[in-house]
Design a protein around this nucleic acid. Structure first.
Lengths: 225, 225
DNA sequence: TGAACAAGCTTCGTATACAATCAAAGGCAA
DNA sequence: TTGCCTTTGATTGTATACGAAGCTTGTTCA
């Protein structure tokens, strides 16, 4: 508690990571006083952070009711992946044309860390790393504007996975990311685009877009864990 | 003044329209007290609105300095149109497959209003309508997520136009929007996609991406006008 | 026994107050 | 006169206080 955080951006970031790592399940109430106490800031700062997350569709702000971790609908889930399918393949293509040795190394380290997290059973962290991998691609493509959209879509995808994905065992155990790195390394733009496209399709078809379970926990437990 | 506005969303919306209509040029300082007085709300509400606009890249929030209407860089200008070229053509295709009579009528009315505004010399309003036309397409395509992105990109495009577009005379005098409506009406998806793509390219190539002028005005004058 | 109403409590929405920071103006010395 | 430093004014960042809205729970009446 009282981790003494400066500024609303940091609050938003910490909450976003917790959401992305499934430590804060969809539907969780985010009490302003409680969050403020945990981070050692006043409600003013917390509110600003929550508003930022609301803009990113990570939390739902209900008037006079409070903030809740968002629960994307089936419709929204489809739209998110539709948007990703428009943005990411072309971005992967661009990245293939620009990726340097340093970029490739960074991506490899990224996948490395993801596998390590999986190995030690930290599924949440693995999922988060798996997501930021996509953001990294956009960064390599030197498209900050698109990268920001993708970052948001990836976060929302994490919520969608929390709600609609049952077979977590296969959590990105697919070697799509490895294949993507190889395509980027060899500068094969067509291949990179194709791999990304099929990777996204894989993700999408592995969703069970029918029901919406959820298992809430206490806020403090999730955040300090 | 003291138009007695409720909530930060309304403040953000009014400022966004003013920016979109070029009544608030890039670089304009948005003083919190001043904006609050104009709308009859406290700084708390104004700040929330400004944060929202910052998230949409319409204003720049500089720590301890205040809020300023954003001045997109040349790099950002390119990225915005790159993103639009990824999202909008495909969305226009979708819209062509879904557009009903009511949708077409609404679009026609939209273009109508745009021409009327041009006729009476209200270039700002014409520009705004020209932009929301694109948002409307996304709405018809029933893609709210993508529509939100496009809305943001359109607003940013307006700032880009304010900075980098000299030949305002040709302000969407092109009949691209008419052609688009015809394609949607006949359900010709290929044509809709092609027209949108070339329309965006037209816009992009009409920019002079070299310098960045600006002519500030007083805040109150722009908002109450 | 069950449903409806009401009182109390919790939580949010907004305003205001105070502290921190920055920028510009003024003074001093070279 | 010019350059630098100090000081002062203005504006933002954060905290807190107060009013409003919603949820909960306990009671009452059918």
């Amino acid at each position: 508690m009282a981790r003494q955080v400066t500024g609303s951006a940091e609050v938003a970031e910490k909450l976003a990571v917790a959401i992305h790592e499934h430590r804060l399940p969809p539907g969780t109430k985010l009490n302003e006083d409680e969050v403020g106490e945990i981070f050692g800031v006043s409600r003013t700062v917390v509110r600003a952070g929550l508003q930022q997350l609301a803009h990113e569709h990570l939390v739902d702000l209900k008037r006079n009711r409070g903030a809740f971790v968002a629960k994307p609908s089936v419709r929204e889930a489809r739209e998110v992946f539709e948007a990703r399918s428009l943005l990411e393949p072309t971005t992967a293509r661009s990245a293939a044309l620009r990726a340097g040795k340093a970029d490739i190394a960074k991506l490899r380290a990224h996948v490395e860390a993801e596998h390590a997290a999986l190995a030690e059973g930290d599924d949440g962290r693995a999922l988060h790393l798996s997501g930021t991998f996509h953001t990294e691609i956009a960064r390599i493509a030197k498209q900050d504007t698109i990268a920001e959209f993708i970052t948001q879509l990836v976060s929302r995808s994490s919520l969608i996975i929390a709600l609609y994905w049952e077979r977590r065992a296969a959590l990105c155990e697919s070697h799509a990311h490895d294949a993507l790195i190889r395509a980027l390394e060899s500068g094969d733009a067509d291949e990179a685009e194709a791999v990304m496209k099929s990777h996204l399709l894989d993700l999408y078809t592995s969703l069970d877009l029918r029901d919406a379970p959820s298992q809430p926990r206490t806020l403090k437990e999730a955040l300090t864990g």
